[in-house]
Write a protein that binds this DNA or RNA. Structure first.
Length: 333
DNA sequence: TAAGACCTGGAC
DNA sequence: GTCCAGGTCTTA
């Protein structure tokens, strides 16, 4: 589910709760959520327990915690998080809650104090009915101020693990928030995302125009440009009046640029309102939903009129994923 | 590049 | 029961 805007909402929401804190304990309720950890769950617990969080960084849909030892030196490994299709990070308790709690949110969201479906914690413990917000809690990170960060993940496609830091190839800041060029090894092959000022858009355009693959497949290729998932691919293509199945090699330079600019604009607007959520599978660190679903022009709207030309939006399938598009105002060339 | 795998759960 | 779901990773 979560694409770049949703992951960035989580990063911004999480940062004030974890920056400078020490991870004092890890509870592993679901070892499969650590399956990307080399050495398994024991290695994960050993690697992060006692580490201090220096800052949170993100590229595309990958979010990682830069860690220090007790003397303030770099640990050389980052705590990686990927939300997969259904992952959430939820914060409970702790010092940052004191000021944040008064307005029911620590993030920049402009929502009112009453969230869409903010669960009223505290919640019952243990395995329970579907209404139990803790039912899919997989990993719990305890912090030295008493706060807990819950990694909640219904489908277990996401996970936590550690990844060694390496130098990024181009020597530029590794992410917009980086103060150095260090990048987790597992992110080295991931392209810079469209919100990264160091992203080379003309280079991406050149690669796309040299490939025969459909434009949507190229947008979803995280090694080319990261952060775009099924929703924002369809929305960016709609904004650029371009069909999902237009081969990359048939795009003009200007058309390719409009597709990327369209995807960027849609993601920035989503970020402004707290991300896209259709249900409680995507929520912010305080349990609130984002508001962007009401702004989607094409995604999930098969059978409804195109907001631009009123032609009925159609659903098709590419690479086993749904594609929503307007058969009239989105063109292959 | 394309299919299958990895998972749970909701809608029908 | 069937199909669907916002993502990656591996294998043919």
């Amino acid at each position: 589910m979560p694409e770049l805007p949703e992951v960035e909402v989580v990063r911004r929401g999480l940062a004030p709760h974890v920056d400078g804190r020490v991870i004092t304990r890890v509870d592993v309720h679901e070892p499969r959520s650590l399956r990307r950890q080399i050495g398994g769950p024991d290695a994960f617990v050993h690697a992060v327990t006692g580490a201090r969080v220096a800052r949170l960084e993100r590229r595309g849909k990958f979010l990682w915690w830069r860690l220090q030892d007790e003397r303030g030196d770099e640990l050389g490994e980052a705590l990686m998080t990927h939300l997969g299709m259904s992952g959430q990070m939820r914060v409970r308790g702790g010092a940052a809650d004191v000021e944040a709690g008064a307005t029911a949110g620590a993030t920049a969201g402009a929502e009112t104090a009453k969230g869409v479906d903010a669960p009223s914690e505290p919640a019952p413990r243990g395995e329970g009915p579907a209404s139990d917000p803790h039912r899919h809690r997989r990993i719990v990170l305890h912090l030295d101020d008493g706060a807990q960060v819950d990694f909640v993940d219904q489908r277990i496609f996401g996970g936590l693990w550690t990844s060694a830091l390496e130098q990024d190839a181009d020597g530029l800041p590794a992410t917009p928030d980086s103060i150095d060029d260090l990048l987790p090894a597992d992110v080295v092959g991931i392209g810079r995302d469209l919100l990264d000022p160091a992203q080379d858009r003309e280079a991406v355009i050149a690669v796309m125009r040299a490939r025969r693959a459909p434009i949507k497949a190229l947008l979803l290729d995280q090694s080319l440009v990261s952060g775009i998932g099924n929703i924002y691919a369809d929305e960016g293509l709609w904004a650029a009046r371009t069909r999902f199945d237009a081969p990359g090699e048939t795009l003009t330079r200007g058309r390719a640029r409009r597709v990327l600019d369209g995807a960027e604009a849609v993601m920035r607007r989503a970020l402004d309102v707290g991300g896209t959520s259709f249900d409680d599978l995507y929520v912010n660190v305080d349990g609130r939903s984002g508001y962007f679903a009401r702004s989607l022009a094409a995604y999930g709207r098969a059978g409804e009129p195109c907001p631009r030309c009123a032609t009925i939006i159609r659903r098709s399938v590419l690479q086993q994923r749904s594609c929503f598009f307007c058969p009239n105002c989105q063109r292959r060339a």
